[in-house]
Amino acid sequence: MMKKWMALLALAVLAGCAKNADGLGAADLRSEAYFRGERVIPLTFAQIQMALFKHEAACGSAPRFAMNPGQTAYATLTDAPAGSDDYRQTIVADLMYYRASDLGSWLTKDEERDWRTRATVYSYYAGAQVDARIEQIFSAIAHPGECSGASPRPDEPSADGQAPADK
């Protein structure tokens, strides 16, 4: 009986961590009211992760990639302002890794080309600023070495190729 109570207590603690103080959690964002768009990324999960690692190395930060436990075809990208755990400020992109239609693979012989990732994007807020942040997420994947709006790391050379100490 004690084990059941401890398990329930642990579950309650974990459930409390998944939401903000105002009760908004990542699962709450996944509704039609907060839907901000859908995109197809012609990359595998591994390629997306590599791009995000490169972007973080070049720019100092990147959206967080996390595989869904026990489901190899599903993952989540989250982008929150630095130091914030407020889901009202967070952009969530649910990723699904899939293969294009059988017709497409019949027409093309390149098997690797048929694998892609669908991203479904959610955000509490809408508007031009959120749209720009969503663009930055996908730009970090498509062009990992470019830091649009973000400042490069201090130890990185500047655009003219000189190290910061050389200036």
Results as ranks from 00 to 15, higher is better:
residue 165 A to S: 13
residue 56 E to Q: 15
residue 15 A to T: 15
residue 80 A to Y: 02
residue 62 A to V: 06
residue 79 D to G: 01
residue 30 R to Q: 14
residue 10 A to S: 11
residue 78 T to S: 15
residue 52 L to E: 02
residue 154 P to C: 07
residue 68 N to M: 15
residue 118 R to H: 07
residue 110 D to M: 10
residue 77 L to M: 10
residue 19 K to P: 01
residue 62 A to I: 06
residue 61 S to H: 07
residue 49 Q to Y: 03
residue 49 Q to S: 05
residue 135 E to Y: 10
residue 45 F to P: 00
residue 99 R to P: 00
residue 106 W to E: 10
residue 23 G to V: 09
residue 142 A to V: 03
residue 73 A to W: 09
residue 8 L to N: 12
residue 140 A to T: 08
residue 94 D to L: 14
residue 112 E to W: 07
residue 48 I to E: 04
residue 143 H to G: 06
residue 14 L to W: 10
residue 116 R to W: 08
residue 32 E to S: 06
residue 25 G to R: 01
residue 154 P to L: 12
residue 23 G to P: 06
residue 165 A to G: 03
residue 151 S to G: 02
residue 157 P to F: 01
residue 142 A to N: 08
residue 159 A to L: 15
residue 29 L to D: 07
residue 104 G to N: 10
residue 31 S to L: 05
residue 70 G to Y: 04
residue 40 V to F: 13
residue 112 E to N: 14
residue 97 Y to R: 01
residue 102 D to M: 09
residue 110 D to F: 07
residue 95 L to F: 06
residue 37 G to E: 05
residue 11 L to T: 05
residue 118 R to A: 13
residue 37 G to Q: 07
residue 16 G to P: 06
residue 128 A to D: 14
residue 66 A to P: 02
residue 85 D to V: 08
residue 18 A to F: 10
residue 31 S to M: 07
residue 16 G to D: 14
residue 19 K to S: 08
residue 50 M to Q: 14
residue 43 L to V: 05
residue 5 W to M: 15
residue 20 N to L: 00
residue 139 S to M: 08
residue 102 D to V: 09
residue 114 D to S: 06
residue 63 P to L: 04
residue 122 Y to W: 05
residue 142 A to T: 09
residue 154 P to D: 12
residue 147 C to L: 07
residue 20 N to R: 00
residue 11 L to D: 01
residue 84 S to R: 07
residue 144 P to I: 11
residue 98 Y to W: 13
residue 2 M to H: 15
residue 137 I to L: 04
residue 104 G to R: 11
residue 27 A to N: 12
residue 119 A to F: 00
residue 15 A to H: 09
residue 113 R to D: 13
residue 121 V to T: 11
residue 72 T to A: 13
residue 36 R to V: 03
residue 145 G to I: 08
residue 45 F to Y: 13
residue 46 A to S: 14
residue 26 A to R: 11
residue 14 L to A: 08
residue 9 L to Y: 03
residue 10 A to E: 09
residue 159 A to E: 14
residue 157 P to H: 02
residue 11 L to R: 04
residue 166 D to Q: 15
residue 141 I to H: 01
